[in-house]
Design a protein around this nucleic acid. Sequence first.
DNA 1: TCTACCATGGAT
DNA 2: TCCATGGTAGAA
Length: 726
Amino acid sequence: MRVAEVIINRPAKKMNSPFSYAVPPHLGEIAPGTRVAVPLGRTKEEGILIGYRDLAEAPTYEIKPIQAVLDKDPWFTSEMLSTAKKLSKYYLCALSEALSLFTIDKKQLKSYERPKEQWLVVQPWFQPEHIPMKRKRQRELGFYLQELGTASVHSLQKDGFTLPVIKQVMTYEGIIVEERYTQTKTKFNACVVKELPLTEEQQQCYEPIKRAVTTCTADTFLLHGVTGSGKTQIYMKAASECLANDRIAIVLVPEIMLTNQIVTRFVEAFGDEVVVFHSKLTISERYNNWERLRRKDSHIIIGARSAIFAPTDDIGLIIVDEEHDTSYKQEDMIRYHARKVAKWRSEANHCPLILGSATPSIESYYLAMQGIYRLLELKHRIFHQPLPKVQIIDMKEEMMYGNYSVFSGAMSHLIRQTLGNKEQMIILLNRRGYSTFVMCRECGEPIKCPHCDVAMVYHQSGEALRCHYCEYHEPVPRVCPHCGSQKIKFFGSGTQKVEEELQRNFPKARIARLDQDVTTKKGQGEQILADFGAGQYDILLGTQMVAKGHDFKGVTAVGVLTADSVLNIPLYSASERTFDLLTQVAGRAGRSNGKGQVVIQTYNPLHYAIIKSKAHDYIGFYKEEIQAREMLGYPPLGAMIHFRIQHKDKAKAMAIAEKIVNALEVFLVPGELDIMGPYEEGIKKVRDLYRVAIMVRGNDLKSIKDFIYNSWIFTQEGLHIDVDPV
DNA sequence: TCTACCATGGAT
DNA sequence: TCCATGGTAGAA
């Protein structure tokens, strides 16, 4: 007996294997990849038909029939199905979760139909002269229609006819109303892009990419180019080549929210050939975009992380811009890395993948050094502007000279100088809120969140202490909840406090602050950036979002208040992230006139991540970093899996973790595959759940992953598995 | 995930 | 004895 294998569309790991259903004859042949409605228990559920199977003998359970077909054409191509399976096994998540990444509507059991609209078709016997003179607009529409022969209701409304008038004309003799699929095709002027000249260096990088696009080769290129070297130009050339071959190009950008340079340039150059995916799109806009890609009305999709799951086959090119950016790794739910998925999809679609960055991820650069990726380098800035001058300030020294303020002498001087020259400055501080923690002077106890193991942060707005890990907030206590003393003091400086201090020291400066507290109100972040770009502010103060890809012409100076905030995070990639952040933010200075100045304050002035970023020396940094990782077996010279067990009972969490370690111990080969833990995490408790962790590190984790995928560990409650944590 | 089922246990 | 709660196996 032939049965259909259906994955129930529920994010439950326990339902990871497909369920068998019969296909009733009246539904005909259902292609794999189609969404179907099936009975499950006593409810009706949505599922994805992933294939067929022959049952040798009658099963012990009842085979129920599929109730309905939800997609006219299968939503999932076979490539999407196989990529989802790969993702599920690699990242140890449920197949249904992996599949749902490719869908755009989380509402279930909704069938999707291609958008249709009504068209009025004029028949030979239509006589507008019979329409009474009194009905002026209808008569005009009649003659207008006769001229056109056929027109859609939508287009007539655009031409100034109201809906009642059109409705009335539709009833007249000689007018036939037809339903047609919406056609939104607009002509694209390819010349715009073709005329974009490339420098010789760019041309050299572009040649092999072009060859790979035309020959449909799944090569991966690492395009390493300093900021301002014209990577976008190469992306656009490659995309236009892909478009000329009538295949789809996917362009991934880090965070689309903040007015993204690349998006604007693509839209300007390619017009309606570009479809922009971002989280603010409505469901119908998403469907419409997808439909455009499927009909090849548009060939380029540009968007953040999730755009890699564009439901399309025939991908001809994938570009990951700023490939080192950490926003490509999803940190909640399914913790996939978009760069990894891009690689899989490029292989399955036989198309090249371009990874572009000024500071490539250590992993990508390593693979390029191994000859697995092809390294392409842009060493010169297009207009040959010099890179900014970077000064490193040792804050320990500042303190020795009695300066306890957040601004070193050099920093104050740079601010004063920039303001004096009527130029703009960006100041980076990786801490939001007012103060970093609140502590009692008597007993030395910091005030902690009652639900999480973290110090609460004072936020001026609302005069409240907030926890950055949960929604908990409370007013600042008058007396210490621990010892009753009144000596409560604020320590450390967040963006809010620094803003205040800046304003006090430089009363005339116009200061804009950009951090999560400001961005939560939608559109406000973009507005601040736009205003700053328009010169309405002198200083832009903010968390790392000020460091990313904006091109402000008036900015000549950049200040980093604490380079250590990222460096001190206990992660193997802390140095890499520090180097990236410093290099990125320094790159904001002097983009147009070339006299950029940067001041970096730090307590670790001798750390190589800081020294190498001062010298704009990526390769030097890479060499030191790869050595450090080689010694410790960190990625890319080994892979890691992070297990987090959460439980409201600390002992239970520990017990579960120990059970997991015991089960995995058979794979332990010291030096080859190591298991660390179970240990309490740095932050012991979040939202009243205790956190215990296990870390597995090894040169090859495939077999241990396969084991976990098929064992009880996979469905263990309260366990979160993070493959390739960053 | 959702649901039905069973076990436990406190209140009546 | 009743019902409420909690934990858990199974769904085709």
